[in-house]
Amino acid sequence: AITFRFEGQEKAKKFYEKLMRQNLEATIHIHGDEVHVTVH
């Protein structure tokens, strides 16, 4: 698994949606202002 870190939720959401379109499995974790997107 690879984890990407984002400042702010907007960028993270766009990235997450892009992964979903590519049929990749990903989970999102929100830590205050920092958002972690883990790709499995």
Rank of each mutant, 00 (worst) to 15 (best):
11 K>G: 10
39 V>W: 09
6 F>W: 02
17 E>L: 07
5 R>G: 07
40 H>K: 12
31 H>R: 08
31 H>V: 14
18 K>C: 15
14 K>F: 07
9 Q>F: 15
7 E>Y: 13
39 V>D: 01
1 A>Q: 12
33 D>A: 09
31 H>K: 09
31 H>E: 13
13 K>Q: 14
29 H>D: 06
21 R>P: 01
12 A>F: 04
17 E>H: 04
15 F>T: 01
26 A>K: 01
25 E>D: 11
9 Q>I: 15
20 M>K: 11
38 T>D: 04
19 L>F: 02
20 M>E: 03
13 K>C: 15
32 G>I: 05
27 T>R: 06
19 L>I: 08
15 F>K: 01
8 G>E: 15
10 E>P: 03
11 K>T: 12
31 H>Q: 10
25 E>T: 13
10 E>N: 04
22 Q>H: 11
22 Q>P: 01
19 L>R: 00
27 T>M: 06
25 E>F: 13
11 K>I: 11
9 Q>G: 06
6 F>K: 02
33 D>S: 11
6 F>S: 01
17 E>F: 04
40 H>M: 11
32 G>E: 08
30 I>P: 03
2 I>D: 03
25 E>P: 12
12 A>C: 04
35 V>P: 00
27 T>Q: 06
40 H>I: 13
4 F>V: 15
40 H>Q: 09
13 K>M: 15
37 V>T: 00
14 K>P: 02
16 Y>Q: 03
28 I>F: 05
34 E>P: 01
11 K>Y: 08
15 F>S: 00
2 I>T: 06
2 I>K: 07
2 I>C: 15
10 E>F: 04
18 K>A: 14
20 M>H: 03
26 A>M: 07
40 H>A: 09
1 A>Y: 15
34 E>M: 11
25 E>K: 14
39 V>M: 07
4 F>L: 07
21 R>T: 08
24 L>H: 05
18 K>H: 13
6 F>Y: 02
16 Y>P: 00
8 G>R: 05
35 V>A: 03
12 A>K: 00
30 I>N: 05
3 T>F: 06
21 R>I: 08
20 M>W: 03
21 R>H: 06
16 Y>D: 00
24 L>W: 08
39 V>N: 02
35 V>H: 02
12 A>I: 03
5 R>Y: 15
37 V>A: 00
8 G>H: 13
34 E>A: 08
30 I>Y: 11
30 I>E: 05
12 A>V: 02
32 G>Y: 05
20 M>S: 04
13 K>V: 12
1 A>S: 14
26 A>V: 14
27 T>N: 06
16 Y>K: 02
7 E>D: 13
30 I>K: 05
37 V>N: 00
19 L>W: 02
36 H>K: 04
2 I>W: 06
26 A>Q: 01
8 G>Y: 09
1 A>H: 15
21 R>A: 14
19 L>P: 00
26 A>R: 01
5 R>T: 13
25 E>A: 13
30 I>F: 10
8 G>L: 11
31 H>F: 13
31 H>A: 08
19 L>T: 02
16 Y>G: 01
38 T>R: 05
25 E>Q: 14
30 I>G: 02
3 T>E: 09
8 G>V: 11
17 E>A: 06
11 K>M: 13
29 H>N: 06
26 A>H: 02
12 A>R: 01
2 I>H: 08
19 L>A: 05
10 E>R: 04
36 H>Y: 15
28 I>P: 00
25 E>C: 12
20 M>L: 14
22 Q>V: 06
28 I>Y: 05
17 E>D: 10
33 D>F: 11
24 L>N: 02
12 A>S: 02
32 G>D: 06
27 T>Y: 12
33 D>C: 07
38 T>A: 04
9 Q>W: 15
35 V>N: 01
29 H>R: 08
38 T>M: 09
28 I>G: 00
2 I>Q: 05
35 V>D: 00
37 V>Q: 00
35 V>S: 02
10 E>Q: 06
7 E>R: 11
10 E>S: 07
3 T>V: 14
22 Q>Y: 12
35 V>Q: 01
1 A>G: 14
32 G>L: 07
19 L>H: 01
20 M>Q: 07
9 Q>N: 10
8 G>W: 07
22 Q>K: 10
1 A>I: 12
2 I>P: 09
14 K>Q: 12
13 K>P: 01
9 Q>R: 07
25 E>M: 14
27 T>P: 00
4 F>M: 04
36 H>N: 03
36 H>I: 13
6 F>G: 02
19 L>E: 01
16 Y>E: 01
26 A>D: 01
32 G>M: 06
38 T>F: 07
11 K>P: 12
40 H>Y: 14
21 R>F: 09
19 L>M: 09
7 E>A: 13
15 F>R: 00
24 L>T: 05
9 Q>D: 08
15 F>A: 02
5 R>W: 15
23 N>E: 05
7 E>W: 12
24 L>A: 04
26 A>P: 04
32 G>R: 06
3 T>A: 04
5 R>D: 08
24 L>P: 05
22 Q>I: 09
12 A>Q: 01
4 F>K: 10
23 N>I: 04
4 F>P: 06
7 E>H: 12
31 H>L: 10
22 Q>M: 15
28 I>N: 00
29 H>A: 10
27 T>W: 09
38 T>L: 09
36 H>F: 14
7 E>K: 14
9 Q>V: 15
12 A>Y: 03
3 T>W: 11
13 K>N: 10
14 K>R: 11
40 H>E: 06
24 L>G: 02
13 K>H: 10
10 E>D: 10
23 N>C: 14
34 E>S: 07
39 V>R: 02
31 H>M: 12
31 H>S: 11
19 L>G: 00
13 K>E: 10
23 N>Y: 10
22 Q>L: 15
1 A>P: 10
33 D>Y: 08
27 T>K: 06
9 Q>T: 11
15 F>Y: 03
11 K>R: 09
7 E>N: 11
4 F>Q: 07
18 K>E: 14
20 M>V: 11
16 Y>N: 00
38 T>C: 04
29 H>C: 12
29 H>F: 10
18 K>I: 12
1 A>W: 15
34 E>R: 05
14 K>Y: 08
40 H>P: 05
31 H>N: 10
39 V>G: 02
1 A>M: 12
40 H>V: 09
23 N>Q: 08
12 A>P: 01
35 V>E: 00
17 E>T: 03
28 I>L: 07
4 F>C: 15
25 E>L: 13
34 E>G: 05
14 K>H: 08
23 N>L: 07
25 E>N: 14
3 T>M: 08
6 F>E: 04
32 G>S: 04
18 K>W: 15
17 E>W: 05
20 M>C: 05
18 K>T: 10
23 N>R: 06
23 N>P: 02
11 K>V: 11
34 E>D: 04
22 Q>T: 06
36 H>G: 01
8 G>K: 06
24 L>S: 03
6 F>Q: 01
33 D>E: 10
20 M>P: 01
35 V>F: 10
11 K>W: 08
29 H>Q: 10
32 G>V: 05
38 T>I: 14
29 H>G: 03
21 R>L: 12
17 E>Q: 07
34 E>K: 06
3 T>H: 08
18 K>P: 01
5 R>H: 14
4 F>E: 09
3 T>K: 05
24 L>I: 14
28 I>W: 06
21 R>G: 08
20 M>F: 04
21 R>M: 11
38 T>N: 04
26 A>L: 08
6 F>L: 02
29 H>V: 12
27 T>L: 04
15 F>M: 03
1 A>C: 15
39 V>I: 14
7 E>Q: 12
33 D>N: 14
30 I>Q: 07
3 T>L: 11
12 A>W: 04
3 T>G: 02
17 E>K: 04
31 H>G: 02
3 T>N: 03
37 V>D: 00
10 E>T: 05
23 N>F: 07
26 A>N: 01
18 K>R: 10
19 L>Q: 02
1 A>L: 13
14 K>N: 08
9 Q>H: 13
7 E>F: 13
24 L>E: 02
17 E>R: 04
33 D>W: 08
17 E>M: 07
20 M>A: 04
9 Q>A: 13
29 H>Y: 13
22 Q>W: 14
32 G>W: 07
28 I>A: 02
10 E>A: 08
2 I>E: 05
6 F>R: 00
32 G>P: 05
33 D>M: 09
21 R>Q: 12
36 H>P: 00
31 H>W: 11
37 V>I: 09
14 K>C: 13
36 H>D: 02
9 Q>E: 14
